[in-house]
């Protein structure tokens, strides 16, 4: 019976593999190739070596965007996971209407990033206009505005993962802890958290990479504004994150910049992949076997 199944396996895997190659592998390889080229149109690119990479690394807006993104990713990672875990913990204590709360908290996640960005820009500006200003005029507000937006969108999603984790904590362990006289705090630290480590791993991974890859919300909420033009004319888009920086490089400048943007994108991929893998490695080690 095994042999015929194996013979037909390509039929089942094939379409997915083909779609994956067309939609991911091939563009990825082409992207790497283009990062070594000067091009206006993809169809007539000329190889120029590592020029694009050196230009990208010398670009002050790219370094600014990197540090800004890193700060954003870390702050949003901490806030999102702490609040999501707290809400999940509360909603697994058997309080009334917890199913309704779960649904409500999860719902923002169903709205697209661009729409969310515009909705929140209206909310923030509605408030700030009372003070004669706007979120587009102050980079600190831009930063916290983005954090609030991301929290609002992501907490519900992470909460669902934590709830699943919390519900999987074995009852007998909790009971044993109770019999041994553990306080609520001790139970949380010594029993619950080690047991939901897999959920923490996945949630921190998701929120960290989401923070680094953030694009739509950034574009719709501030689009990098306020922009400071420094003496000499160099522009710093103070609330521009890495993905938006790549996009702006690609479309905002002349044809020699498209290759630079491509080089930035390749470095961006390596960075996100590396950070994600390192984080996975460290949190995995903290997981316990049930």
């Amino acid at each position: 019976m095994k042999a015929p199944m194996r013979r037909w396996s390509w039929l089942f895997i094939g379409p997915v593999v083909v779609a994956f190659i067309i939609g991911f592998v091939w563009p990825f390889i082409q992207g790497i190739y283009l990062s070594f080229c000067k091009f206006r149109l993809i169809s007539d690119a000329k190889i120029i070596g590592f020029d694009n990479y050196s230009k990208a690394l010398q670009d002050p807006t790219f370094t600014h965007a990197f540090w800004y993104t890193a700060l954003f990713a870390i702050v949003s990672l901490i806030i999102i996971n702490i609040i999501a875990f707290l809400i999940a913990y509360l909603l697994t204590q058997g309080i009334k209407g917890s199913n309704l709360f779960r649904t409500v908290f999860f719902m923002p996640n169903l709205i697209g990033g661009i729409v969310l960005g515009y909705i929140w820009s209206m909310i923030f500006d509605g408030i700030l206009s009372k003070f004669g200003t706007s979120i587009l005029e102050n980079s600190t507000w831009g930063f916290w505005g983005l954090i609030i937006l991301m929290c609002w969108q992501q907490i519900g999603y992470m909460m669902i993962i934590y709830i699943a984790g919390l519900q999987a904590v074995p009852e007998d362990m909790l009971e044993a802890a109770k019999i041994d006289g553990a306080t609520k705090g001790q139970t949380l630290r010594k029993v619950i958290i080690p047991n939901v480590m897999p959920s923490i791993t996945i949630c921190t991974f998701l929120s960290l990479t989401n923070g680094f890859k953030l694009f739509d919300q950034n574009l719709a909420l501030t689009a990098g504004k306020p922009i400071i033009t420094m003496a000499g004319g160099t522009q710093i888009k103070t609330t521009e994150m890495l993905a938006l920086n790549i996009y702006n490089t690609f479309y905002g400048q002349n044809s020699s910049a498209t290759g630079v943007a491509q080089a930035k994108a390749v470095m961006f991929f390596i960075l996100v992949a590396a950070i994600g893998l390192i984080q996975l490695y460290y949190t995995r080690r903290k997981e316990v076997q049930q």
Partner: peptide
């Protein structure tokens, strides 16, 4: 030059001036 980028910088500066 680089018209969109140039104008975006100008808009931001004018926003600060307007307020």
């Amino acid at each position: 030059p680089n018209v969109d980028t140039y104008r975006a910088g100008l808009v931001s500066a004018l926003n600060a001036y307007n307020s």
